[in-house]
Measured scan of single mutants.
Amino acid sequence: MTSCHIAEEHIQKVAIFGGTHGNELTGVFLVKHWLENGAEIQRTGLEVKPFITNPRAVKKCTRYIDCDLNRIFDLENLGKKMSEDLPYEVRRAQEINHLFGPKDSEDSYDIIFDLHNTTSNMGCTLILEDSRNNFLIQMFHYIKTSLAPLPCYVYLIEHPSLKYATTRSIAKYPVGIEVGPQPQGVLRADILDQMRKMIKHALDFIHHFNEGKEFPPCAIEVYKIIEKVDYPRDENGEIAAIIHPNLQDQDWKPLHPGDPMFLTLDGKTIPLGGDCTVYPVFVNEAAYYEKKEAFAKTTKLTLNAKSIRCCLH
């Protein structure tokens, strides 16, 4: 018999989150649709729960009410004593943790798909938090293969000092899905179709896995975050240069030392320094102006996964 890495157990509980950011409308629209008619997301033997994560922000069509829901799922915020004085999103995070967690427990949901849009030209993107997770690498390989020839990129946010504390991190297997470009507060049919297909293929993978299909060893190309880059700023902290036209919409493309990065209003080009080629992502993302992030630098690498098969009882 072929030796293989056996994944822990079959997958039982899956959640699909929309509206973690209330103005990213593809996930909101799909989740609302699936709450009314969820036939397309159901798979035999699998509990799939669509869920609106930040209903107040969705109602106002804004990213958040008090603070970013997708950055506060750490033990400090989840452990705060519940009171009306807490920011709305912290209270909501505790409610979500109660419903789908608790985080880092045996009772937490197996998989959470968190649906997002970006204003950046990132196409279909899967966000991975753990480079050693054979199950998710296999799932992402399946999704990428199923979507081809449509490109699907994998963004690895594993980093020693950049801690995200994402909404989906309460699950055993957290999956971020990011599709763009799409303006905030807008629905685009092409973007919706791409996100819908990503979810379909992900659920198909889980179904095949649960039925005992063995997935042979595989490898995927990923883009691992190195650092986030702020806009150049003046002495008052105001933005002093904008994304250069040569960099705009060039997510995932190589940016070499000396290539144009920013452009000042008086026409001066600010190039990339250093001696390493990087791959920019979230270029000129609207939501990241407040976070002082013009783009993120990534490096390209390959992740390998062992063969996996479900432990059938």
Score class of each variant (00 low, 15 high):
Y153C: 15
F282H: 15
S169G: 09
L303V: 07
F282Q: 12
F140W: 00
R168T: 12
A39R: 10
N210C: 07
I177D: 02
G258A: 10
F262W: 08
F215D: 00
L30H: 01
V229Q: 11
L126G: 03
E214G: 07
P149V: 03
D234E: 11
I96D: 13
M198Y: 00
H21I: 06
C218T: 08
K163W: 11
L263M: 11
D230F: 12
L46I: 10
Y231W: 10
H21G: 06
K253F: 06
Y88R: 06
L312Q: 14
I65C: 09
G258P: 07
A39D: 10
T299R: 13
A165S: 13
R43C: 04
S146R: 14
C276W: 08
P174H: 09
W252K: 03
V229G: 01
F73K: 09
F29N: 09
K200C: 14
D234Y: 08
L192K: 02
H141S: 08
K163R: 12
R233N: 05
V31C: 11
P183W: 03
M139C: 04
I112N: 00
F205E: 00
F295E: 00
I170W: 06
T125F: 09
E24D: 14
L78Y: 14
G185P: 02
N236G: 08
D204S: 03
N134G: 06
T26Y: 02
L69S: 06
D230C: 12
L78P: 08
E214N: 07
K163Q: 15
R132P: 07
N54D: 10
I65G: 05
F262G: 00
V281F: 03
C124N: 10
E285W: 02
T269Q: 08
L128P: 00
T119E: 11
R168K: 08
K297G: 04
F209R: 01
V179K: 00
T299A: 12
D130H: 05
K32V: 04
Y289F: 15
Q94V: 07
L263K: 11
G237Y: 04
V31P: 00
Y142M: 03
F113D: 02
I239F: 06
D68N: 07
E40M: 03
H208C: 14
D85P: 06
L162I: 12
T53N: 06
T26G: 07
G19T: 02
E24F: 01
T166Y: 11
